[in-house]
């Protein structure tokens, strides 16, 4: 039972990062009916910038907590600018173009970002990890009633939950959030209300990218960082968004958590020779959703906006 609780907590903390990323897919889909396939690369750039910022901070002998803060904040700023630019330069000129054109552009942006980060003076192809002192500091476990949780997991939880709370507040309680909900329902009617839809779209990309940057830094703290790390991870977060019902914000949360938990349980409970298949769990789930309930858990049955 203790073991189960422990795995559940780890699964939830992994799921919380999937959820952060899934929120970006779902919000952009909500306003533009567009799958931003470059979103996984924003996450990757988040991890890479976090890596650079933390090394810079440690070189200046910043204490661990400060270095981490600098990494999170710096990476959030980099990703916010990146997300804004992706929309402004790649998607905005194509507004109203056929979906296939936009999809191909999204893939193009992904490849561009992967290859830019692959340049040696930016980051390079070699997988790297956050400095050992950071990892050591974060891997210390805290025992609560026999369940051992590392500091990293606590940070992941606290950060993800507070970001989701802030996002929910923005969407439900602010003027911009109201506009975002209106644009998600119907673009042209929102314009008739006096909403500057271009501004709302920029805000959506910026919010999504900030969430992705945090997920990126948190995963950088746990795994190795490579220019291709956003590919599988982005796909899994996309699956989480589809599972929850793409376009639905609570759906992205639920979808992310579910994917995280099933994956962790698969990793732990599958016989050792099959653990490598844990990554495939998300995709098996995707196939089942597409067969059984294509609109996802919280998805509306609303007809596709044209």
């Amino acid at each position: 039972m203790l073991q189960f609780t422990q795995e559940l907590i780890i699964g939830l903390s992994i799921g919380a990062t999937y959820a952060l990323l899934a929120l970006g897919y779902t919000m952009v889909y909500g306003v533009l009916r567009l799958i931003n396939f470059a979103h996984g690369e924003v996450y990757m750039v988040g991890a890479v910038s976090g890596f650079h910022f933390i090394n810079l901070a440690l070189r200046w002998h910043a204490p661990l907590a400060l270095a981490l803060t600098i990494a999170f904040v710096g990476s959030a700023i980099v990703c916010a600018i990146l997300g804004f630019c992706i929309e402004f330069f790649a998607y905005r000129p194509l507004r109203g173009s056929p979906r296939l054109v936009i999809l191909i552009t999204a893939i193009g942006v992904s490849l561009l970002l992967q290859n830019v980060v692959n340049l040696n003076f930016i980051y390079g192809p070699t997988p790297r990890t956050f400095p050992a002192e950071v990892q050591k500091g974060l891997n210390t476990s805290i025992g609560i009633g026999g369940v051992y949780i590392s500091r990293l997991i606590i940070i992941r939880f606290a950060l993800s939950l507070s970001l989701m709370a802030v996002l929910t507040w923005i969407i439900l309680r602010t003027r911009t959030g109201l506009a975002l909900r209106a644009v998600s329902h119907r673009f042209d009617t929102a314009m008739l209300m006096g909403v500057n839809t271009n501004r709302v779209i920029s805000v959506t990309f910026i919010l999504g990218s900030v969430l992705a940057s945090v997920a990126g830094v948190m995963d950088g703290l746990r795994y190795t960082i490579t220019p291709l790390m956003g590919v599988t991870y982005g796909l899994k977060a996309f699956v989480a968004a589809v599972l929850g019902g793409i376009g639905s914000i609570p759906g992205a949360l639920i979808g992310g958590l579910l994917i995280g938990i099933t994956e962790e349980f698969a990793r732990f409970y599958l016989p050792t020779q099959y653990t490598q298949y844990a990554d495939a769990v998300a995709f098996v789930i995707l196939i089942f959703i597409l067969l059984l309930k294509p609109t996802g858990i919280m998805g509306s049955t609303a007809v596709e906006k044209v």
């Binding site: 003027r175 909900r181 209106a182 119907r186 008739l192 909403v195």
Partner: peptide, 28 residues
């Protein structure tokens, strides 16, 4: 902003928003 307001064909209210939120949007 210049003072033209448009009630579209088929009403196009925002069904998932409350009546008050719909009014607030009108004053965006």
């Amino acid at each position: 902003r210049l003072g033209i307001s448009h009630v579209p064909e088929g009403r196009q209210i925002f069904p998932n928003l409350t009546v008050s939120e719909n009014l607030l949007l009108g004053a965006y």
